[in-house]
Every structure is written in C-alpha cells, then in structure tokens.
Simulated assay, not measured.
Amino acid sequence: MEFLVVSPQGLGDSLEATPIVAALKRAIPDASIDVVVTRPGPRLLFSGLPNLVRNVIYLPYWEKGAVAFTLSLIAHCRSRHYDASFLSYPAARGEYHFATRAFGARRRYAHRYDRITITNLLWLHTTLVEVGQYHNILRNLDLVAAAGFPVDRSTTYVVPPSWRIDGPQRRCIAIHPGSIAHGGLEMKRWPEDNFRELAQRLLKDGYEVTLISGPAERDIVSRISAQVPEARVFEGALDEVARFLSTCSATVSNDSGIAHLAAAAGAAVLALHGPTPVEFGPYGKRAVAFRPTLFPPCFDVRRLNVGCALDPNFACLKRDLPVDLVHRRLLDLLQHDAKPIRPNSVMETS
C-alpha cells in the first residue's frame, strides 16, 4: 500500500506527526510512505528517517510564497497513486486541505476543525475525525485509527537515531528564548528580561547556561548574552541542536519547535505556555508544558488569531509566569528527573 502524510506546519507540529508514519509502518511493514512538508526543518527531519519514509515532498509555501508552492504542487501531485492520505494536526488552513486533495488519494483523513462550509474546504476529505481533548500526538494517531489500523497510544516522537547522544548529561540548562515569528506568533514568547533573570539565577545555582539561537531569535539571544556574558550561545543545524539538547540536564523554552525537539532528543523540558494550550506542548514523561494561569488559552488554529482574547495584555505570560515560579518549577523537575551527570561538567566560577 502507498500512503501520504501531509505535515505542512513547523518543526514542533511535524515532530508530532512522526507517530503517524511510525504507526502506518508498524501496521503494514511493506507500505511505502511519502511525506509532504512546507518548511526546511521538517524536510530535514523526515529525510533522516529512510526506514520509515520513502520520499519527502517539499512544497516551499513559507519559504518562497504561494506561486512557488502551487507550481511545486502541480509538479508532484499526480506522480503517485496513494491508497490513503493523512493531514496532520493542526492544519486548518484551506491551502492545506486543497493540497492534500490534489494528491488524489482514494481515502483522505483529516480533523474536523469546524462545521463543513464551502470556504473551509473540509469537504475535500473523505473522513473527518473529531479533535480530541488531549495532546496533538494522540490527535494524529486518531487519524490512523480512523483508517482501521491499530495504534499504540504510548507512542511518542520519532527522530533519526543520530540526533540523540545517550548517556550521562552535563550540568547544563539550555534556554531557548525565541519562537516562530511570522503572523504575530511571537506573542507566545515569555518576556526577554525574564529569560535573562532566569539565566542569572541558574548560574548562581551552579549550572552552565547555554542560549539556543537561530534566525528567529538572534537579536534576543544577543541582548541576553550581552547582559549575561557567562552564558554560552549555541547555534547550529537542526541535528546538531538536537544532539546538544540531548546532553543537557534540561531545556527551558517557549512553546516552540525547540521544546518538542528537546523532548524528542530525550531531554527534560519545561515549556512555558501562555496563549497556546498545553495540548500543543512537548510530549513525554520528561516534558512539562507549564501553564499556571487561570486565563483560558486564546489561540485558535481555526481562526489563526494572534490577539489577546480577553485583552489582559497577555497576563498569562507576563504576570502569571513570574521568574520565581518558573525557577522553582524547573528545580523541581530537575530534582525529580535526576539522571547521571557527566563529571567535570560544572562551569568553573571564581
């Protein structure tokens, strides 16, 4: 059988889609599975899983725009005849439904984001699955179950084996102060000064601190680094970042792809959530999606909204996630998730 998995979002959402591929391959070992992506990071991720994925089809929607996306879609959409396609969650944009339909799979599985209308294109699928009140990984596995295949709901992320370094971890805390920035999604970020203060406290606690940088947060990292010169900075290719995170005691991050990457690499993770629900956070026994606010999450994938629904100026991040609380929660995570520490890994201080 031939299957198509469409994973059109960013790194975190694509990591959450890897269990779809694993479940299909487990159910039908000789199945051929292609994956559609729209960003370079997910392209690298799925290209590193040749035992699961036959081809990675890259439609450069976010990198090169709608015209390049459409031309690439036309070039690829009829190259194979698929038995079934699976549009991973979250993917409410009409473009994603249209692209999935263009590949022409006989059965097409997606989530029901809303009631079916002419404009939302949900009618392009043959089977719509209700969005469960649980983590996105489990929501994705619901698509596989709807197709009649068995699923193991204890499944977690799948990453290339070379993206992890097993063994004792260094006494180092990785801090990722950024997130995806397009369309106003920088609203998900904990205040920059809070990350700076947290880094200073962790240094006083005797931990090494490394700031994880990338194109979307170089300016933020540069400013924090200037105020906390003892903190190191790490920037690299996706696989290099994953390997580095796997050696750290823990990662503190916004709700971002890096939080998912750290969890997938086997590290303890504290992800700071405000506008986005915890169901979007990192997954696993060593992952904590921390959202202590009483405000309901206001981000809605159906609306693609980036505003503060109740207009409290993102108090969920700025007021209800003080540095003291985050610091205590991180130390608690480290205490209850202790793993062997590599010797001589504590930074020398005068």
Rank of each mutant, 00 (worst) to 15 (best):
V269S: 04
N136I: 13
F234T: 06
L304S: 08
L325E: 14
E235Q: 11
L44G: 06
A226P: 00
Y113A: 05
V5T: 02
S225M: 08
G167M: 11
R153C: 11
A145Q: 13
A147K: 07
V159A: 09
L49G: 02
K64C: 10
R223P: 08
H111Y: 11
L45M: 06
P312H: 15
P160C: 07
R93T: 02
G183I: 06
E279A: 13
A91F: 02
L334Y: 04
M347D: 07
W62P: 03
S14R: 01
S7I: 13
Q9W: 08
A68R: 10
E63Y: 06
D311W: 06
A289K: 00
H97W: 13
P292S: 12
Q200V: 00
S88Q: 09
P40K: 12
I74Y: 14
G206V: 07
S85W: 05
L52I: 02
V131F: 07
L333C: 04
S72M: 12
F234C: 05
P29S: 06
H336E: 15
R139P: 03
D219W: 07
T251M: 10
S225E: 12
L4D: 03
A268W: 00
G266C: 02
I180T: 15
S179E: 11
E348N: 09
G214T: 02
V346G: 15
S88L: 03
R170S: 14
D324T: 03
P282K: 05
T210D: 08
F3K: 04
P191I: 03
A315W: 04
F98W: 15
